[in-house]
Nucleic acid binder design. Structure first.
Length: 791
RNA sequence: GCCUGGGUGUCGAAAUGGUAGACGAGCUAGAUUUAGGAUCUAGUGUCCGUAAGGACGUGGAGGUUCGAGUCCUCUCCCAGGCACCA
């Protein structure tokens, strides 16, 4: 073959690899495994674009690299196939979501195969397959069994367009994460998984992870631990508990404020304030969270209940108010108001004539920082941090307070009023009490006699077959739960199912989990920084806590890498915007290898960037040059080329650890340019080089490897070692007044004086130094000499 | 407001405190061709200069240092996240 023909080469090796089953792993027999995982895709009808490719190419790069390191690499692929888009498409086209999903998966598989990644397709999974969702249901039942799945009546986020409730995590600045519709509130009965029981360990576990700092920070903020104290205030009939992080400002409390929905509001409201309170409570119920925020940003509204509480230390009577800037579901739904040292309290106090007492030294009001206490009786003069502890202790001694921790994290709402998900495996008896489905009835299959029009309740509720099925299995008057599980439940455990995708007897095999987890490398987008990653960590910790998994490390993903997003002209690629760059024509024209290389060369892997449609030429030219090298093998330049290779290898080995593949390819380009301009190319160097390029360019390197006379696949060889050339020391950089003049070959062991003497005789230096006095010199041994003539 | 990241040519970017802009795109000139989103060769930060060479340049202002894109202080701008969380 004379010139680089990517079509022929790729076609040939695709077939060979498939025939040899090179990418299939016998999971039980492996002793040095490497689990390389991509966040599995949702098979949308839009297909893959060049942005999706980038993550898949990156993971495949490391999968192949680890194989060359001698690891047995497991690199699976599957589909997160339940979800709204397929259902919405089905409604629109009067079809069935399964048809859309299955069709999209077919398209995805062929597009994924174009990448040439070493996926073990024999272990592919599909979360909408009964064989998978049977075990998602099983998982839910395990939570139920341990009291961690619970049905609760509560005010929840509701998307009026998608006609379903949403988890807190799926509300993005007041809007539905999926459709962008403004989210409203609705009081309904919903299923929750008690993730808050795990808040502290989910927080602490972050410290052990090799994850990008920003993702860890996002999760920390989301969990939102705050340390403070509960304090009890007595009223006439009842006592109120508040949560505060500023016990040091206790003497500045001039009111207690409750959330309008607080259960004690009715008890505390006196007759003469009843109308005003009732009105206010009704008004705030109608507002969405966003409206509540917006309105109260201007003036903080609220009303007096008519009741007073006793301040335990000052013995003053302080008024109890309700205001919607206090949230029911944080802390105790009640706060002690310290207007002098809290901005919100300050605003409220000012507009409602509540006294403001300064208790921390400072100039402005409100002053929210820490400092020395004043107006605080025996605590005067103490610093905030000391006072906090002392006041809390003193209150505790009198049974009026204690140290406490609060979290921003809420329980995970998992029920959805939509069809295309795993049915929640619960059956209600005629009295309405929920019971788990018997295990022998799993999977609880989705009914098929359903029209998908959403209507505020699950469309499944309208299935006659589902009603009949429940009664046949459980008796007259028994009914299945008709909500389905959030798709994040499906994806919270898929990495376990990959290890035994066809096991009919259990969700996963603990022995294999022990062998293969934690996952060595997990690659996906930043968009899953909170939801998917937090839920997965929770589920995995649950499985360990209750003995389903026996691994010591309670974290599923030890190493995480976030791939940056690829956009076009600043916009996210999407079919609806019509700005999707498809990889298919690029693969056809330039080849899989060129596109793979270009995806890696675009810039640092974690950076989001704009797609430059022309840059791929550079990688294509590189491959043409590389291909040409095999045609001029000779030995004339052996030594210098080995030296160049050794330098290259040292550099890329270091870069690889930091995922700096753009510069790895730059180094490769430099070396190939050097070899390209030489008369002949060292065969040894070429063989070494080709192996180092195999992770990025599997097809062309496999071809070159064969051309170099090898019978086995290049992926059965090992990452090269250096030739051990004594890397000739770079000379000493000599500067005059910090300006580089020349690089001089110089024995490292000679003294600074000797070097200076030598340099002064060289014409380049003697000319420049003629009219100058040398004030002093700075010498860094073997590296640099700076001759200073200026004062 | 708070928490993360970032500000370097026309663009993507590179630089263990030691010649800023490697590598690539684009552009310019030339070559080549079965006219392509092809390939090959050379040049390409700004200003002064025919040239040799010099000056200036990493958002801004200071500082540390023989030496700062890199370290420190302040400040401006951009992106992302959280946001009445007590």
């Amino acid at each position: 073959m004379k010139s680089y023909d990517h079509r022929a080469i790729e076609k040939k090796w695709r077939q060979v690899w498939e025939d040899q089953k090179l990418d299939e792993v016998n999971l039980a027999k492996v002793d040095n495994g490497f689990y390389c995982l991509d966040m599995f895709p949702y098979p949308s009808g839009d297909g893959l674009h060049v942005g999706h490719w980038r993550g898949f190419v990156l993971s495949d790069y490391f999968a192949r690299y680890q194989r060359l390191q001698g690891k047995q690499v497991f690199h699976p692929m599957g589909f997160d196939a339940f979800g709204l888009p397929a259902e919405n498409a089905a409604i629109k086209k009067k079809s069935h979501p399964k048809l859309f999903t299955d069709q999209a998966i077919k398209g995805f598989i062929s597009q994924l195969k174009a990448i040439g990644a070493m996926y073990d397709w024999s272990k592919a999974i599909n979360t909408s397959d009964p064989n998978y969702y049977k075990w998602t249901q099983w998982l839910f039942l395990q939570f139920f069994k341990h009291g961690l799945a619970e049905k609760r009546d509560a005010w929840v986020n509701w998307c009026p367009k998608d006609q379903t409730v949403l988890a807190n995590e799926q509300v993005v600045s007041g809007n539905c994460e999926r459709c962008g519709m403004k989210v409203t509130k609705k009081q309904t009965s919903q299923w929750y998984l008690k993730i808050t029981d795990f808040a502290e360990e989910l927080l602490n576990g972050l410290d052990t992870l090799d994850w990008p700092e920003n993702v860890k920070t996002l999760q920390r903020n989301w969990i939102g631990r705050s340390d403070g104290a509960y304090v009890i205030f007595h009223c006439d009939k009842i006592s109120l508990q508040v949560f505060t992080t500023r016990a040091d400002t206790f003497f500045g409390v001039t009111a207690i404020v409750l959330a309008p929905e607080h259960p004690d509001v009715a008890n505390l409201t006196t007759k003469e304030h009843q109308n005003a309170v009732l009105q206010y409570v009704e008004l705030s119920k109608e507002k969405t969270d966003l409206e509540r925020q917006k309105d109260t940003n201007q003036t903080k509204t609220g009303v007096f209940t008519g009741s007073y509480a006793l301040h335990p230390l000052t013995h003053q009577q302080i008024p109890v108010w309700i205001a919607d800037y206090v949230l029911l579901n944080y802390g105790t739904g009640a706060v002690m108001m310290v207007p002098a040292h809290d901005e919100r309290d300050f605003d409220f106090a000012q507009s409602h004539n509540i006294p403001i007492i300064r208790v921390i030294e400072g100039e402005k009001l409100p002053y929210t920082g820490n400092g020395k206490l004043i107006n605080s009786n025996i605590y005067d003069g103490l610093e905030s941090d000391v006072a906090m502890i002392k006041i809390t202790e003193d209150l505790q001694r009198r049974g009026l307070g204690k140290e406490a921790v609060n979290y921003r994290l809420r329980d995970w709402l998992v029920s959805r009023q939509r069809y295309w998900g795993a049915p929640i495996p619960i059956v209600y008896d005629p009295e309405g009490t929920p019971h788990p489905i018997k295990e022998e009835h799993l999977p609880l299959l989705l009914p098929t006699d359903v029209d998908f029009q959403p209507g505020g309740e699950s469309p499944i509720k309208r299935s006659k077959e589902y009603l009949t099925r429940a009664e046949q299995l459980y008796g007259k008057g028994w009914q299945f739960e008709t909500d389905t599980l959030d798709t994040f439940v499906d994806s919270s455990w898929y990495y376990l199912r990959f290890l035994s995708p066809n096991d009919d007897s259990r969700a996963f095999d603990p022995a294999l989990v022990k062998k293969w987890l934690p996952i060595n490398l997990y690659i996906g987008g930043i968009e899953h920084a909170i939801l998917h990653l937090l839920y997965s960590r929770f589920v995995y910790r649950f499985l360990i806590k209750y003995g389903y998994v026996t691994n010591e490390n309670p974290e599923p993903f030890q190493k995480l890498f976030n791939i940056g997003m690829v956009g076009l002209n600043g916009a996210k690629m999407s079919k609806s915007k019509g700005n999707v760059i498809s990889p298919d024509p690029l693969v056809e024209h330039y080849g899989t290898d060129a596109l793979r290389g270009y995806e890696l060369f675009l810039g640092p892997m974690e950076n989001s960037l704009d797609w430059n449609p022309r840059g791929i030429n550079g990688v294509h030219r590189f491959l043409i040059k590389l291909f040409g090298l095999t045609q001029k093998i000779g030995t004339e330049n052996d030594a210098s080329q080995k030296e160049a290779f050794d330098l290259y290898l040292t550099r890329i080995n270091a870069m690889m650890k930091d995922f700096r593949l753009n510069t790895v390819l730059s180094e490769a380009m430099i070396l190939v340019n050097t070899l390209h301009t030489a008369e002949s190319v060292s065969k040894d160097v070429l063989e070494h080089l080709v192996i180092t390029l195999a992770p990025a360019f599997p097809f062309i390197t496999e071809e070159l490897w064969a051309n170099l006379g090898h019978k086995e696949s290049i992926f059965l060889s090992r990452w090269p070692k250096s030739f051990g050339t004594a890397t000739s020391k770079p000379g000493v950089k000599v500067m005059i007044d910090q300006k580089f003049v020349d690089e001089i070959d110089f024995d490292e062991d000679l003294s600074e004086d000797k070097l200076l003497e030598m340099v002064r005789e060289l014409p380049r230096f003697s000319q420049r130094l003629a009219n100058h006095e040398i004030k002093r010199t700075v010498y860094k041994k073997g590296e640099l000499l700076n001759i200073i003539t200026r004062g």
